[in-house]
C-alpha cells in the first residue's frame, strides 16, 4: 500500500474538484478499493472520501420510480420498505451478494464500480491487460474457471462480479453521473462495457466523474420475478452464474420479459433478441429452454469454465420457471426451489 493524500469534501462540486488530479480515487465503503490498495493494484495519489456528500437518500419519483443516492449502503437499500415492496428483485439480488458486514459498508455507487475478481488482476506479479494495458492476459490458458463465456475478447475474459447490477440491468435502471463537464444520465446497459481491445476500461464513465445516483422507473413485474445465484458455496461467494428475471404475464402469455445474467460476461448480460422471441409465448418449460438455448448459443468456454455454459442454460430455465410461477427465490432459503 502506498502513501496518499486524503481529503474529505462536503459538497459534490468540491469532490469533483478534488478528483481532478491524476490517480485520485473516490472512497465510498472502501470494501473494494482498500483491498485493491493492499494488493498494490490501486495506488491512488489521493483518496477523496465522499462519505460526507449528500447522496444518502432513497426518493420516490412522481411516476412511481426511485432515485437512489450513490452513498446508500447495500443494506439500507435492500431493507428499504419501498424497495422491498416495489422492487423486490433489486432487494433480492443485493441480499444474494457478499455478507451482511460487507453490505453494511458497501455503497450503491461503489457496487457499480467494483472491479473484477479475476485472480490475475489481483496479483501484480502476473500479466494482466486490465491492470497493465498491453501486458497480456494470464487468464487465457490459465486459471479461468470463474471467467466469461459471453462477450469476452482476446485481450480479457474477466467478468463483472456484482449481483446488484444484474438486477439493475434487468430493471432497465440508469446511472446519474456528474463531472467537470456537468451531469449525464447513462442507461444501465450502456454503463458497463465489454472488454474489446480496451479491457482496462470497465465502464463508460469519463475521468473525474462521480456517480451521484441510480434511477429506476416504475416496475410492473409484480410477483413474477426472481434472482437465482449459483456459486461455489451457499453464501459469501461470487456468482458462477446468476440470473435476474422479470416477467409480465397477460392472458396466459408472456407480455414482457427481462432477463439479465451475472458472472458470465464483462457486464451484466442481456440478450434483447432472445427476449423479443420469448414475448407472446406461453410461460412453459419448452419456451424457456428455447430461450436459454438462444442466450448461450454464442457462449464460448475457456477450458476450465466450459461448464458455465450448461450451468447458465439450466439456471436461466430455473429462474424463468420461478418467475413464471410467482415464487421468487428467497435468499435465506438455500434450496433453489422449483414449482412442479
Amino acid at each position: 500500500m502506498n502513501r496518499f493524500d486524503y481529503v474529505r469534501p462536503d459538497t459534490i462540486s468540491d469532490a469533483i474538484k478534488a478528483l481532478a488530479v491524476p490517480d485520485a480515487r473516490a472512497l465510498a465503503g472502501g470494501t473494494n478499493l482498500v483491498d485493491l490498495m493492499k494488493y498494490e493494484v490501486a495506488r491512488p495519489s489521493r483518496i477523496v472520501d465522499i462519505n460526507r456528500l449528500p447522496l444518502k437518500a432513497i426518493e420516490t419519483t412522481a411516476e412511481g420510480g426511485l432515485k437512489i443516492g450513490a452513498l446508500v449502503t447495500n443494506s439500507d437499500l435492500a431493507w428499504n420498505a419501498t424497495v422491498h415492496e416495489h422492487f423486490p428483485l433489486l432487494a433480492s439480488a443485493i441480499l444474494a451478494g457478499a455478507s451482511p458486514q460487507l453490505r453494511n459498508a458497501a455503497t450503491t455507487g461503489g457496487n457499480l464500480l467494483q472491479r473484477t475478481r479475476c485472480y490475475y488482476f489481483y496479483d501484480p506479479s502476473t500479466a494482466c491487460n486490465k491492470r497493465v494495458p498491453g501486458s497480456g492476459c494470464s487468464a487465457i490458458g490459465g486459471v479461468n474457471r470463474i471467467h466469461a463465456i459471453l462477450g469476452a475478447s482476446d485481450e480479457c475474459i474477466a467478468v463483472h462480479p456484482s449481483d446488484m447490477c444484474v438486477a439493475l440491468a434487468a430493471l432497465d435502471a440508469s446511472v446519474d453521473v456528474e463531472g467537470p463537464d456537468g451531469k449525464r444520465n447513462i442507461p444501465f446497459t450502456a454503463f458497463h462495457r465489454l472488454p474489446g481491445t480496451e479491457p482496462h476500461l470497465d465502464n463508460t464513465m469519463a475521468a473525474g466523474e462521480l456517480i451521484t445516483g441510480i434511477h429506476l422507473s416504475r416496475c410492473d413485474f409484480g410477483i413474477n420475478h426472481t434472482y437465482v445465484k449459483i456459486r461455489d458455496r451457499l453464501s459469501y461467494a461470487f456468482a458462477l452464474v446468476s440470473v435476474a428475471v422479470g416477467l409480465k404475464l397477460k392472458a396466459g402469455v408472456i407480455e414482457k420479459v427481462h432477463v439479465a445474467l451475472g458472472g458470465v460476461a464483462h457486464k451484466p448480460w442481456r440478450d434483447l433478441d432472445a427476449e423479443a422471441a420469448l414475448k407472446g409465448q406461453r410461460p412453459e418449460r419448452a419456451a424457456f429452454a428455447e430461450f436459454a438455448g438462444q442466450v448461450v448459443a454464442q457462449a464460448r468456454g475457456q477450458g476450465q469454465n466450459d461448464f458455465k455454459i450448461e450451468l447458465a442454460r439450466r439456471t436461466i430455465i430455473r429462474a424463468l420457471e420461478q418467475a413464471a410461477a410467482g415464487t421468487p427465490q428467497h435468499q435465506s432459503n438455500k434450496s433453489l426451489q422449483q414449482e412442479k
Binding site: D123, G142, V143
Partner: peptide
Amino acid sequence: ITDHRLGKIMNHN
C-alpha cells in the same frame, strides 16, 4: 488453485 505455468497459487485470500 495453482497456475502451473507460473507455479503460483492464485486464490490466496
